[in-house]
């Protein structure tokens, strides 16, 4: 029987100004999962993470981390948890080495044990060469990696990442995905919030969507994507000036003389499209998804609920 890494029940938060950020949400993450918590801005993602990581006081409900209730076993719950927040939250005057070694100390790891661990995580994240530079001199990507290194110092069983790749270039983002995938494969349960839905689609096995303080979807990525009944493809074609034929269950739009957009119902295949295009002399040079599938579904789900 698998263990529940994160168990949230009837969690509510009403801020001092009366704003109800969370409305009795339930959420469960299994051990070893790579879980995405998605939602538009102001939906309640950061409040949820804030409560799990003890930075926000809850109004009602309960949170358990690996079975440790945060109301009664806070210390044990905190030991299981590593947090990579959205905003940079380390001293800009300290060096990466000082930051991660101090962090280890807060978890009771003495300096003599923390130093080799610091070398290990800083090397893994490509920061060992920068270990003695003031952290304010690091690039944005390095600062993000530093926060991941810091969160990993005590080898948490549950790692929570709040928008970890915001403002990071594509190359670095891909390398961070590889790193997180490897970490997950080694057994760390990961909960991720992100605005890059491609990121959630690539990395996560289960997804919850939160909107206006309520969980409106909580299922596997596979089940979620199966709800998408239409997929849009973009075809790059050789110059074509004639009018297009019509198709059953396939809608074709000509964007310009080199581009077509095609909506295909999931129940249909695209063979007939290519046959007809071939008949009228349209040469397809390449084909791609118009947008990320999850992104399309996300927009649809959130819009339908509003």
């Amino acid at each position: 029987m698998s263990t529940i890494a994160l168990d949230i029940k009837q969690l509510s938060k009403t801020y001092g100004n009366g704003f109800e950020a969370l409305k009795a949400i339930d959420l469960s993450v299994q051990e070893g999962d790579f879980f995405a918590l998605l939602g538009p801005n102001g939906a309640g993602k950061s409040t949820t993470i804030g409560i799990i990581s003890s930075l926000v006081n809850k109004t009602a409900g309960s949170v358990k981390v690996f079975g440790h209730d945060m109301d009664t076993e806070l210390t044990a719950a905190k030991r299981c948890l590593g947090l990579v927040p959205q905003e940079f939250n380390f001293s800009q005057f300290e060096t990466p080495l000082q930051i991660v070694v101090n962090q280890a100390g807060y978890y009771g790891i003495p300096r003599a044990k923390a130093l080799p661990r610091a070398q290990e995580v800083l090397t893994q994240l490509g920061l060992w060469d920068k270990r003695d530079q003031p952290s304010r001199n690091l690039s944005g990507g390095m600062k993000r990696r530093l926060m991941i290194a810091r969160a990993l110092m005590h080898k948490p069983k549950l790692l929570i990442l709040d928008e970890p790749t915001a403002g990071v270039d594509i190359e670095l983002r891909r390398s961070m995905w590889d790193f997180l995938t490897e970490l997950n494969q080694q057994g760390t349960t990961i909960v991720l919030t992100t605005h890059y839905l491609e990121e959630a689609e690539s990395l996560c096995r289960n997804i919850a969507i939160i909107d206006q303080g309520k969980i409106i979807e909580n299922t596997s990525k596979k089940a979620l994507l199966s709800k998408l009944d239409v997929e849009t493809f973009v075809l790059d074609i050789e110059a074509f000036h004639e009018s297009l034929p019509t198709f059953d269950a396939i809608e074709v739009r000509q964007i310009d003389e080199h581009t077509l957009e095609v909506d295909v119902k999931r129940s249909h295949n695209v063979n007939s499209l290519f046959l007809k295009l071939n008949e009228i002399g349209v040469k397809v040079l390449s084909m791609r998804n118009k947008s990320n599938r999850l992104e399309e579904l996300f927009v649809r789900i959130v819009e339908n609920k509003q």
């Binding site: 990581s53 806070l74 947090l83 927040p85 939250n89 380390f90 001293s91 807060y106 978890y107």
Partner: peptide
């Protein structure tokens, strides 16, 4: 106050330090 302002007080608040 600097720890609050730069938010690195969160390092301690998240950790199990009483």
């Amino acid at each position: 106050f600097s720890a609050k302002f730069q938010r690195h007080i969160e390092e301690l608040l998240v950790s199990p330090v009483p």
